[in-house]
Each structure stands twice: as structure tokens, then as C-alpha cells.
């Protein structure tokens, strides 16, 4: 697999040379492989959002280099010619519905492609496509985005990013404030984009269940530093450490912990609901045999 994103000793300081100066990232180095599904976790204020904003050069490192595919961003990079990079890196911000502004849904979704030089016809085509992807009925095309429900607005905003056909998709807490069904639909969309469209997905989240259910790679941040990188199994193998990072275990692991507390022995700590079910079946099987 190729490298999609590479951070090399990146430091970012907000408001350099002022009394407000504050280190948001400190000497961060890591790599995200092309086509991977990476979750970035860490408590509030640990630097997750600052980190992801470097990937499409909305922020530039104060020190160090960020490379995205073959594009290298250093502290000296100017704001010119960043369009090509930003086209490749789609960014869904927290509460993306706040960025809607057009009169109609379709126009808002076409906005990105048009900015990146698509013709009216091409833009409309990718907008229609993006609406299908996020599960918005074509009937909404001509309604005002401000007349839609919160969940629908969120889909329009995400479609607006997908219409640009990015190679990397960054989702910054995409499900905050959605109901459980909306939550699952957005997360399944991320999985679909990863599996079928081969997008590199970077998910910033506080939902540990989503981390174990969807991500293959996890980056843990604490106080502007990356403290651990690895598959979910490795990250959650030490519950004490997880709590120290002010994070939580996935709910299946929490359930399993309660089982362990009552004296039931488990071989490993299950992370997903399937793993938990498997272990329960095994135990129940043994118990069943004993009864015979």
C-alpha cells in the first residue's frame, strides 16, 4: 500500500510570538496508508482537529513537514496552488450543515465541483451521484437546504464534499447530534466509501464503538502528541491505559468486563458485539456440556 498521508515531526503553535501562543501539536510523526480506514481518538482538546486540518493545508505546520500523496507542505508553503491538494482531500467538518448557503440542495452540492473547474454538466452529474450515495431522494434537489431536517441537512453537506470525488475523506465527528439511525447510516456510508470507492477514510470520533466496528487503524492523541498507533485490538488491550487517556472502552468490552467482575473467565477482551457473542456462545456451550 502507498502512503496517503505522512507527518514528519510536525509541530503546530497557535498565535506564534504572542502572549496567547499555544502548542497544539508537538513533534507529531505518523503515516496513513492509502485505502485505510483510520480513526483518530483522544479527549477534547488533545489536538485531533488541528491534526486533520493539516491534511488539506487549512493549517500549516509551524515546524516539520506534512506530505499528502506527492504534495509536500512545509511552514514555508504559500496559500497559492493549494486547490489541487484540497480537491483530493475532502473534509467534513463538525456540524457540516452550518456551511450550507445555496438556494437549492443541488446547487449547494454542485458548489465544490464547480470551484474545482468542473463544467455545469459534470458538476450536476457528480451532485446527483453524491445524493444517491448519501441516500437523499432526488425529490430534494430543488428544495432549499434550510427547509430540511437536521439529519437531511447533514447529508446534503456531506454530499457537497463527496461530489468533489476526493481520494481522502476526513470526517470530524460526523455523527454528533444525530439519532441512532442517522448515526448508523452515516457510518455505513463511510464504510461503503472505503470498501467500494477505495477512499482513504480518516475519522475523528469520540465513539469507541465506531472505532472497533469500522476502523482498521487507530491513532490516539493526548496533549498534542500521538501516544499510540495501531489496530483497535492493540489500543484497547490495556483498559487502565485507555482510562488514563480519558477515553472509554467499546460497549462490548465494558459488558465483558462486568462479566469478568462477576467471576466469568474470558480468554480475551472482546471488542465488537460479534466477538462478545462468540465468547458467550463458547462459555454457554461448555456450561451446557457440564449439565449433560
Amino acid at each position: 500500500m502507498d502512503k496517503a498521508v505522512n507527518f514528519e515531526k510536525v509541530t503546530h503553535t497557535y498565535q506564534v510570538d504572542t502572549p496567547f501562543s499555544q502548542n497544539a501539536l508537538e513533534n507529531v510523526s505518523f503515516t496513513i496508508q492509502s485505502g485505510s480506514f483510520t480513526a483518530i481518538i483522544g479527549h477534547t482538546g488533545s489536538g485531533k482537529s488541528t491534526l486533520v486540518q493539516h491534511i488539506n493545508a487549512l493549517l500549516k505546520p509551524t515546524d516539520g513537514t506534512v506530505s499528502v500523496f506527492d504534495r509536500i507542505i512545509t511552514p514555508k508553503t504559500t496559500n497559492k496552488n493549494l486547490k489541487q491538494l484540497r480537491k483530493k482531500v475532502g473534509m467534513v467538518f463538525q456540524f457540516p450543515e452550518k456551511q450550507l448557503f445555496e438556494e437549492t440542495v443541488i446547487k449547494d452540492i454542485m458548489f465544490g465541483p464547480l470551484n474545482y473547474g468542473a463544467t455545469e454538466e459534470e458538476a450536476r452529474k457528480s451532485a446527483v451521484n453524491a445524493m444517491k450515495l448519501v441516500g437523499l431522494s432526488a425529490n430534494f434537489s430543488d428544495s432549499s437546504p434550510f427547509d430540511l431536517s437536521g439529519g437531511q441537512m447533514r447529508r446534503v453537506a456531506i454530499a457537497g464534499v463527496l461530489a468533489m470525488n476526493p481520494e481522502i475523506l476526513i470526517l470530524d465527528e460526523p455523527t454528533a447530534g444525530l439519532d441512532p439511525r442517522g448515526h448508523k447510516e452515516i457510518m455505513d456510508l463511510a464504510r461503503h466509501l472505503h470498501d467500494h470507492n477505495h477512499m482513504t477514510i480518516i475519522l475523528v470520533t469520540h465513539q469507541m464503538d465506531d472505532v472497533v466496528d469500522y476502523a482498521s487503524n487507530v491513532v490516539v492523541m493526548d496533549q498534542g502528541k500521538i501516544v499510540k498507533v495501531g489496530p483497535p485490538k492493540e489500543i484497547f488491550s490495556d483498559p487502565k491505559w485507555v482510562y488514563k487517556m480519558q477515553l472509554d472502552l467499546p460497549s462490548s468490552a465494558l459488558f465483558a468486563q462486568k462479566m469478568i467482575d462477576t467471576g466469568i473467565k474470558l480468554k480475551t477482551l472482546p471488542l465488537t458485539i460479534d466477538e462478545l457473542a462468540d465468547q458467550i456462545v463458547q462459555i454457554a456451550g461448555k456450561e451446557g456440556k457440564k449439565d449433560e
Partner: peptide, 27 residues
């Protein structure tokens, strides 16, 4: 935040002709 979101969607704030800049202010 909004400026960043629109930048990601390809808006170029603070460059180009006056007409271009006024247009960029709408989003």
C-alpha cells in the same frame, strides 16, 4: 470554521478580482 469548510470546497478567499472576492463572500 465556515471559511475553512468553504476553502475545502475550493473557495479562494482574499485573491482574484473584486468581483471574484464579492462572490466568495456569499458562501
Amino acid at each position: 470554521t465556515i471559511m475553512n469548510a468553504q476553502r475545502s470546497r475550493g473557495v479562494d478567499f482574499g485573491s482574484g478580482s473584486l468581483k471574484h472576492r464579492v462572490k466568495a463572500a456569499v458562501p
